[in-house]
Computed example of a mutant assay.
Amino acid sequence: MQIREDFKEIISEIQENNKEFKMSPRDFLAYFHCSKRTKGNTGRIDNFLESKRIETIPNYINVWIDGELTLKHKPKAKSKTEPDPIQRISILPSANRTPVTTTRDAKLTDAITKMMMHNYSQLPVLSNPKSIVGFITWESIGCAITNGVTTELVKDYLNFEYTILEYDTPLLKAIKTVIEKEYVIVQKKDKSFSGIITLADVSSQFLTLTEPFLLLEEIENLIRLLLDDKFLIQELIDFCKNENDDKSIETIDDLTFGQYIRLVEKPENWEKLKLKIERVTFIKQLNVVREIRNDIMHFDPEGITSEQKQALINMAKFLTDIRKFH
Rank of each mutant, 00 (worst) to 15 (best):
D46K: 07
N59R: 04
E217L: 08
R26Q: 07
R104C: 05
I237G: 04
N221A: 07
N96L: 07
R323L: 15
T281M: 11
A95D: 00
T251N: 14
L108N: 01
V264S: 12
E16G: 06
F193P: 01
E13H: 11
F48D: 00
I197T: 05
P99M: 04
Q15L: 14
P58A: 03
I252L: 05
K78A: 11
L273M: 10
Y120E: 04
N269Q: 12
E307K: 09
L108V: 01
I197R: 02
F7W: 08
T256E: 10
S90L: 03
H298N: 08
D27W: 09
K72Y: 06
S306V: 13
N159Y: 02
E68S: 09
R293S: 02
L226I: 09
T113E: 12
F160I: 09
P301L: 02
W270N: 00
V289F: 00
T163G: 06
E166T: 04
K22T: 10
D46L: 06
S51I: 04
A106D: 15
G303I: 01
Q15G: 05
E211F: 13
L227M: 12
Y60W: 09
D84Y: 09
D84V: 10
K241A: 04
S12P: 04
L165P: 05
Y167S: 04
I237N: 03
Y120M: 06
I132D: 08
A316K: 11
A95M: 01
S35F: 11
E278G: 03
R262S: 13
E235I: 01
I304D: 03
D321Q: 13
L153W: 11
F318M: 13
M297R: 14
T113M: 06
D238Y: 12
R4S: 15
I261W: 07
W270Y: 06
D105L: 12
K130F: 10
I261T: 06
M315Y: 02
W270M: 00
